[in-house]
Design a protein around this nucleic acid. Sequence first.
DNA 1: ACCTGAACACCGTTCAAGT
DNA 2: ACCTGAACACCGTTCAAGT
Lengths: 192, 192
Amino acid sequence: MSETKETILAVARSRAQAHGYLGLNFRDLAKDVGIKGASIHYYFPTKADLGAALAKRYREDSVAGLEKLWADTQDPVACLKAYPGVFRKALADGNRMCLCGHMAAEYDDLPDAVKVEVKGFADDHVKWLTKVLIAGEPGVNKAAARQRARAIYAAVSGAQLLARSRADLKVYDETIEACRNVGLFATSCPKE
Amino acid sequence: MSETKETILAVARSRAQAHGYLGLNFRDLAKDVGIKGASIHYYFPTKADLGAALAKRYREDSVAGLEKLWADTQDPVACLKAYPGVFRKALADGNRMCLCGHMAAEYDDLPDAVKVEVKGFADDHVKWLTKVLIAGEPGVNKAAARQRARAIYAAVSGAQLLARSRADLKVYDETIEACRNVGLFATSCPKE
DNA sequence: ACCTGAACACCGTTCAAGT
DNA sequence: ACCTGAACACCGTTCAAGT
């Protein structure tokens, strides 16, 4: 893949994390890349193509990061402890959001190819969390672990949304801490 | 307030819950109201004015609903049990979102007057939840209760975001149930 | 008071032309 | 292969002017 195409994806990712898919526009994007708006179309025929490539790449990178975390530690407790840090990064970088979290809010206005990736991103995270939870408590009911994984994903996404509207990283940290205190990141999965 | 203005606010609320502030547009809005796009400006000079009025009204209505719930039940357990239902309503109504949750994602692109209301909405919810939690466990540390309130608000917001991207109300219900199983909606506030 | 036409700015997109 | 200016159709926004 050409260097320019990579640059477009990198700049677009950063911009989309701040402004979403709707707030992303070719002319501003091109200015940051150092080319003209029309030139973007040489690499991505339509905005839908760019959006889908963006979400797909973001999803792949995110999954790779999670798998690396698991491979490096092989420790469910360490993975669950580190997980909220993944979303923290975006907030620390100019009060941005997880790209797919942002796009989830815009869901109704997303091209189908982008919807697929946004949905897939959440699926991948829930699957990874489920795997980690089961590794932490081998005998656990799989459905219960998956539900717990969803709760973790939801809490982290919501904490991010809350912290963003306060533009305050401390709010994120404290909210995550409160979730931790309630036992959300523990490896045991209670079922009524 | 004139009837037309009320109609504009009602239609705009519904549309903004689906498409956000950025996705809200005067012509489509006006068509639903039965006037021309330019006529909206007679009531709301700018989109920022409409957005602020919208968020303010939404916030007021939401707080009134919460206060009524508390006044009617006077029961912390019942209030915490009913709380997720508030956000469920929007999803059940055409996979919409809480207006201020949607706007929280768009925060960077919001006019200041709208930001104030979006922030205030989250504050109001956290305050109400804190009050309910303290009523449920009178001796609790107030800071701990507030952090717990934030965790609840975050989890519910995130569950909404997740369910929206799956366009599946069942995902919302199951995620909330998982949060319940972990004890997030209990009236006791554990602090390590 | 209430509403509108028309101008304006901006968008994604196309395409012929340039390097 | 890569990039651009100009043009296009569309749309949100604004404002002076209409009733």
